[in-house]
Design a protein around this nucleic acid. Structure first.
Lengths: 330, 330
DNA sequence: TTGTAGGCGTTATCAC
DNA sequence: GTGATAACGCCTACAA
């Protein structure tokens, strides 16, 4: 480039980075760019600026529509801002989680967005020595103060359960996630709190701790159906377990909502796929992704306003036909 | 590092890259690595070696389980080989498709895996001037000779249709993908060929060209139900359109398989979610991903055996209860 | 406004 | 086996 135009690399660098250059030179450089099909070498630039214009996204699994939808929107926001996204999937493997995080850092990402599983604050602290922005999505890491973008899981669960209660249901089966996962804890809290608020007794037998996988939704639904006094309604608290639950209900030919009322989670398409259409809790995946993306952009620009901010996004309870109103009946 | 150990950078470089170093030096460097928490700067290395140890994956959309499952397995294979993956989603936007491709190249990826949409050979040729390996998945780009890993769409569709035919169905509604997409063309060919092989007439009214989205599955299913002589069976040829079709069938309260037999596509979970369990064509997503990943690794290592190879992976027809056998009845 | 020179962290090529 | 030294392509003082 320098040779072609007869100018120095400094001038050209200025041109590239929008500095002041004589019009005549501007033109000739512009022409050279075309002719030589010049592209800045981001690698070389990164070496100098210590920025890669890339953020890493670390997620538990690429096969969950919840996660990928969020990631997709994060990616969209970053892309608009000239940033690339490296997506890493740690397959819900706590070992891999740390490994991949290091991998990401090794790629010199400028920031990192994590949906953590078993990561601990200490580990994180050690791995991320340089202070690049870290944003958690969906869950946070206890003891590691950083931005978090998540759904308001407690109230999501509260509302859904409340909906069942106000329709006259008293024995509500609750298929919860793992005890050590934050979202699951919150959803459980919602369930418990609404029972308290309505002065209803909790029957521990109705609470099943699954692992957010299809299998456990399937198995625990069956278990719920098999207990002595089976629940009149079942609430599954994530997408996969909702699928599992429906499978079990189908297999047993349990009529929804006549025999059991049901509320599921997460997938809006699911709602209409099943007969009858399912009432579900819908998480604002798009909003989570976009919020995380733009927050990351702000942090990247050095804006630390409100750090660490915990952003809780409202969920929506999509009402369809899977809940029977027995409030009048009772 | 050099300063700390008193050795030259050259020696250290050799150590890092596994060259011969005196045992004593080996130890002192090893110690320095620990103390200084040394990490190779991949950026600087990349600048020198012109390799980023990263491959780009360009996909139409992150929200399709078909795509993400494949990507997940690609990523797994690459990771095992020390390679990173940059995933780019072009949102089924032909404009973005080229943009993101350039973006990927800008990141100096060493190889690129593409699930193309509207990309043309010429464009590709222009964008990818340096000859990094390119592997297509699911579909290829006409006129651009490169490796392709895909499902055997023709036979997948042939078998599914044949299954319907041998069960006595003659009027089979076919919800096809866009005419200009290769997978759709192949699936259509399968449908046509089996009709030929069984000497059955084709009724054009039964073939609907959707766009692989839920909406079109929904609409065309309704259209099929509304024609004068509606089909006895419907075959939807991708995941999204299968969902749409089921929604339409549910909405109309059409009984499967009593009133209409049905075969769907792609999602194994779907099969059991719906009542009755659906017979579906299952694509070997894992295999596609792993094959593409390891093929990429081979190409990256300079092994050009069999280039360009077109790998067609067998699909499976998962038989459940959504097809009625009327062969005896007729 | 433009050019020169030095450096970012690494690898490659020589001598030694 | 080791150490200077020159790249890699870019950015940034600082000097002209």
């Amino acid at each position: 480039m320098a040779k072609y135009t007869g100018l120095s690399v400094a001038t050209i660098s200025k041109y590239i980075n929008g500095g002041n250059v004589l019009d005549s030179n501007r033109d000739s450089i512009g022409e050279a760019v075309k002719i030589l099909d010049y592209k800045v070498n981001e690698i070389a630039r990164g070496l100098k600026t210590r920025k890669s214009k890339t953020v890493g996204v670390l997620i538990p699994k690429l096969d969950s529509i919840f996660t990928t939808t969020i990631v997709s929107h994060i990616e969209g926001v970053l892309q608009e801002n000239g940033y690339g996204t490296i997506i890493c999937d740690y397959r819900r493997d706590p070992g891999l989680e740390a490994v991949k995080l290091e991998f990401l850092l090794g790629k010199s990402v400028d920031g990192i967005i994590i949906m953590p599983l078993a990561l601990e604050a200490e580990q994180l602290q050690k791995i991320i020595k340089n202070d690049i922005p870290v944003i958690f999505i969906d869950r946070s890491v206890k003891g590691f103060g950083s931005d978090v973008v998540m759904a308001d899981n407690l109230n999501a669960s509260y509302s859904a359960t409340e909906y069942l209660i106000t329709r006259g249901h008293r024995r509500i089966g609750f298929i919860c996630g793992p005890r050590d996962i934050h979202t699951a804890q919150e959803r459980l809290k919602g369930y418990l709190r609404v029972h308290g608020d309505y002065r209803l007794k909790i029957d521990e037998a109705l609470i099943k701790y699954g692992d957010y996988e299809i299998e456990s939704g399937y198995n625990y639904t069956k278990e719920l159906l098999d207990i002595l006094k089976p629940p009149a309604a079942i609430f599954a608290t994530n997408y996969e377990m909702t699928i599992g639950a429906i499978m079990a209900l189908n297999e047993r030919s349990v009529k929804i909502p006549d025999e059991v009322s049901f509320i599921g989670f997460d997938n809006i398409h699911l709602a209409d796929l099943v007969k009858p259409p399912l009432s579900i809790v819908v998480q604002p995946m798009r909003q989570i992704g976009e919020t995380a993306g733009s927050l990351m952009m702000r942090r990247l620009k050095g804006d630390r306003t409100g750090f660490p901010s915990i952003i809780r996004l409202k969920t929506e309870l999509l009402i369809k036909d899977s809940v029977r109103d027995i409030s009048g009946v009772v």
